[in-house]
Computed example of a mutant assay.
Amino acid sequence: MTSVNLLLLAGTLVVMALALYALSLWRRVWAQQRDRQQAEQQRRERLAGDLQILAGSLLDGQLPLIEGAIRIKVLLDNYDSALSQDSRCQVFHLLFEATAQVPTHASWKALELTERRQHEKHFNELELQHKAAARTAARWLLDEGLKRTGS
């Protein structure tokens, strides 16, 4: 064999080795993409299930309206921002914003009783004002909203 033939053979082997290496790297990329898509699908299914439970609990009266609206709004934001911004879901945003300044957990327990009662009075007023709209929104989510987004 001549040196030219040896160089061509060596070059061909290097190109083939690099091609095989590139193919193995692409397979890893495709596997990672598939794994990410599966993880995202599982996350969406979990969130959709949680939203169905919350909306159903709100409708059944097993969940206080204000708490349910806040939880639904937060999950909707994480599930599908377009669905969250749908006009039929705005009552959840309204209730979330109307109660955003209210302390939670240990801070709630640390409040004076009179302060707590003021917040509770505000909650009752909000509930009277928005209960029908929140129930309508929860029903729409169960019947149409979550089904449209592919849950």
Rank of each mutant, 00 (worst) to 15 (best):
L51T: 01
D60S: 09
Q118V: 04
A19S: 04
T99V: 00
H122G: 01
Y21C: 03
L141P: 02
L6T: 00
E45L: 01
R148L: 15
S81N: 07
Q52G: 15
R135F: 07
L47Q: 08
S151P: 01
H130R: 06
E125N: 09
Q38S: 08
L83S: 11
A137Y: 01
N5Q: 11
L9T: 08
V15S: 08
A17M: 12
L7H: 15
N124P: 02
E120L: 14
Q42H: 11
P103I: 10
Q52S: 12
L141D: 03
H122N: 08
A110I: 07
Q42E: 09
A69F: 04
L13N: 05
W26N: 11
D50Q: 13
L54K: 10
T136G: 04
K109R: 11
Q101S: 15
R43E: 13
L7C: 00
L128D: 11
S84Q: 15
A98T: 02
N78A: 11
A82R: 14
E144W: 01
T2Y: 06
Q33M: 08
I66Q: 05
L113K: 08
Q33N: 12
V102F: 02
V91I: 13
R27N: 13
N78R: 15
Q52L: 13
R27T: 03
R116I: 05
K131T: 06
V29P: 05
R71T: 04
K109P: 04
L8T: 07
T104N: 03
W26E: 15
K109S: 15
G49V: 03
W26I: 04
R44P: 13
A31S: 13
H122E: 09
T12M: 08
Q33P: 03
W108F: 15
E144R: 13
H130I: 00
Q129I: 01
L18N: 13
A106M: 13
L75E: 00
G56L: 02
L65P: 06
R46C: 01
S107Y: 12
G49A: 04
H105I: 07
Q33K: 12
D60H: 07
Y79P: 09
V74H: 06
L6N: 03
A98K: 12
R117I: 06
A22V: 03
A138Y: 04
G11E: 14
R135H: 12
L65G: 04
I66C: 06
V91K: 14
A133E: 12
L146N: 08
E112S: 09
A134Y: 06
T2Q: 05
V4S: 03
Q32N: 10
Q85A: 13
V91L: 04
F92K: 06
L65V: 13
K121Q: 15
L23H: 09
H93W: 08
A69G: 14
G56A: 05
H122D: 07
T149P: 00
T136R: 08
L83K: 03
R27W: 11
L23V: 02
E120R: 15
A138I: 00
